[in-house]
Structure formats: C-alpha cells, structure tokens
Design a protein around this nucleic acid. Structure first.
Length: 315
RNA sequence: GGGGGAGUAGCGAAGUGGUCAAACGCGGCUGACUGUAAAUCAGUUCCUUAGGGUUCGGUGGUUCAAAUCCGCCCUCCCCCA
C-alpha cells in the first residue's frame, strides 16, 4: 500500500511516473494499492481545510499548500500507477454528530462521482469508499449510492479510528450487506488478528494496515499464542525463533536472543526482521482462513485462532 | 611512607541542616499503537496489611530537625615516594 498524500510531498508523482510507476520504482512485482489521501483528511486534520471542491492541506514537511480535489487525486494515482486506486473521501472522525456525518458522507459520494468521471486508465481498478460514521442509515445510504456508481470494488472506510470494538463491528455490519458479492470488499486500515477475522466472517475480502509493521518497529511480535515483546529481558538467552511454527525468513534464520540484542542495540535490522515476521504471520493467517472457507469451516477456524490468543481481543 | 579524593535506590548520578522516599539518566516491569507526521508514546520501579514503616558505607554524637554538621571506624580511587 502506498499513499497519494505522502508520495505527493516526497518524491512527487511526476518523479514516480518518470521512473515508470511504483512497480518499477520500487522493483516490486506484486499488487500495489494507493490510498487517496482521504485518511490524511482525518489523521492530519490540524493541517487541512475541507470545502465542497476538495481539501487544502498544509504540508506537514514544508508548510506548502496543496489542494486535493477528487479529480486531482485520481490524476496523481494514475501517475503513481498502482493496480488498485481509491476514490477521494473524508475519513470521518469518531465520535461525530449525525448531522456532520451526513453532510460529510454526502460530499464523499459527490466526490466519488467526480473521481469516477476523471478516471482514465482502465488498467487500474478504482474503488469507491463507504463512509457514514457509526450510523446505520448513513452507512446504508453511503453503500447504496456508492454501489450505484459501479466501481471496480468497494472499500469500507472510517473504521478503527478510536471507536470501541462493538462500534467497529456495527460499522462493518451496517455496510457489508449492501455491497455486491461479486466485487472485492476492502476493509480499510484493519490489521489486528481479531478484527481481520471478524471482517472475514462478515464477508470482507481485503485488508491493509500499518499495525504489523508499526508494532514490529516497537518490538511487538505477533504469534498464534499472543503478543510478545522482544525487548523483554527474558528473551536475553532465548535461542528459539520468534515462533517455532513460522516459515518466515526471520524465524528460519534468527533467534529471539539475537533479535533482542539487535533491538536493544538500536540496530534497524531488528525492526526489519520483526516486520518480516509480522507480515508473514498475517499473510499465513489469511492463507489458512482461505483454506478454512474452502473447507466450509471458517467459523471454527476463527474461534480456534482467537481462543489460542488467550483473550477475546486477540492480543 | 607522604598527599589528595570518594562512598546516595539494581547501575550511573544530583542533592550539602527542614519543602527528601531523595531530581535526572540507564536498566527492569506494565501497557498502547490498526486506509503511516509514530525506530514512538504513557505508566511504574525501597517495604507496606496503604495507616504507615525503614533508608543515603558503619557507628557514636550535635540539633526541635541530619543524606547534608562533628568524632571514630571500614572500603575504594588518584598522585608522589
């Protein structure tokens, strides 16, 4: 996953285009998705102003003004060249009034139309984003109106921004039933084990999140029996891999004791090794979920996984 | 043998009569992080039945009051011989 706002600031979409697009620039042959900057409307709320036409950002790096319209955001993403691109939206804060959520959600739908009209590169899939806050009527309205526009896939946005888990589940429950089964459903920004499994149980196909890499950088390791922090002294002479059953590069080659030593010594390699593990951990989880679905035993699989974590939250 | 300096919580280190259970850092322990302004942030770290109790190398004093002042002792470091 790459980001329109951040890549615009540095190194710039023109440069990425000149390099031949993100795949060539990064030398990455796998699927790439770019987010539209809609999340930065929420996360960088202090530095922006919203109007009907779009969002004016103040660059958090230089202070420079950047005007993002739905059309501009599509144009930038076409230059970046990801496989899947996102419609411009506003990720609504939580908690929020019904009045504001309605106003914002309606605007996001207008922006979705504009973005769709501006979209030229048909080799890229364009997804529309469902908003609506925590409100059932707005989620339904947002989903139905967005689906009417006929996007290549549908994203559920505005979740995991500080709301309690029951509210998160509500948001998903209020959105998914109105999204077609024959197009991808993407739950944006979800990365914890339990949230992913709850999403899959509700019919979601895709996820993305910084969680596995961010917590890895902070020393946290995802394992099937719960979360573990590599900083801890108990791992000082623990010469086992992070997780015995794991087939990742890190677990195949390094011990907890060594990774802890790297971490404590502030060696960046520790962060990379932990990130590799957490990413592989989640991908493996999804692979197994897929197998469980094929075998028509997904709910059992989900329960088995969550029970092993030792608590309801996952970790 | 002569001269000088130092001993404070797990470690380092402030504090030099009351506002000191004692700053700060490290280490330890908890916890957070979810469409990336995050190699970050928060809490905790003498004991406690939570009322309080016992601390600043040891010991004996001075004082209403001592980590802080005085005597003696112990240990360590540096310089000269």
């Amino acid at each position: 996953l790459a980001n329109t706002y951040h890549l615009t600031l540095r190194p710039g979409a023109e440069l990425v285009a000149k390099a031949g697009g993100l795949h060539k620039f990064m030398n990455y042959a796998g699927p790439i998705l770019t987010d539209s900057g809609g999340f930065q409307v929420f996360s960088l709320a202090k530095n922006r102003k919203i109007n009907e036409d779009g969002v004016i950002f103040r660059s958090h790096l230089s202070g420079e003004k950047l005007f993002f319209t739905p059309e501009k955001v599509i144009e930038i993403q076409e230059q970046l060249g990801a496989d899947i691109i996102m419609s411009f939206d506003e990720c609504i804060d939580y908690p929020v009034s019904h009045t504001y959520a309605k106003e914002s959600t309606e605007r996001t739908i207008r922006w979705a139309k504009r973005g769709l009209n501006a979209h030229k590169r048909q080799d890229q899939a364009l997804f529309g984003i469902v908003q609506g806050g925590e409100f059932a009527d707005l989620r339904k309205y947002s989903a139905l109106e967005t689906v009417k526009l006929n996007f290549d896939g549908y994203s559920i946005g505005g979740t995991s921004i500080g709301e309690p888990k029951d509210v998160f589940l509500k948001m998903v429950d209020y959105s998914v039933p109105y999204l077609p089964e024959d197009k991808p459903r993407y739950l944006m920004g979800i990365g914890s084990i339990d949230y992913i499994l709850e999403g899959i149980a509700r019919g979601v196909d895709m996820f993305d999140s910084v969680l596995p890499t961010r917590i890895a950088r902070h020393g946290a390791v995802m394992t099937r029996t719960g979360r573990l922090n590599i900083r801890k002294e108990i791992f000082k002479d623990d010469f086992r891999p992070l997780e015995a059953a794991c087939d990742c590069y890190t677990c195949q080659n390094y011990t907890r004791a060594y990774i802890r030593h790297l971490y404590v010594s502030k060696e960046q390699l520790a962060q990379r090794l932990l990130s590799i593990h957490n990413l592989r951990f989640l991908i493996k989880l999804i692979e197994e979920a897929r197998e469980a679905i094929k075998a028509d035993r997904f709910l059992d699989f989900k329960n088995e996984v969550l029970i092993k974590f030792g608590d309801e939250r996952g970790f």
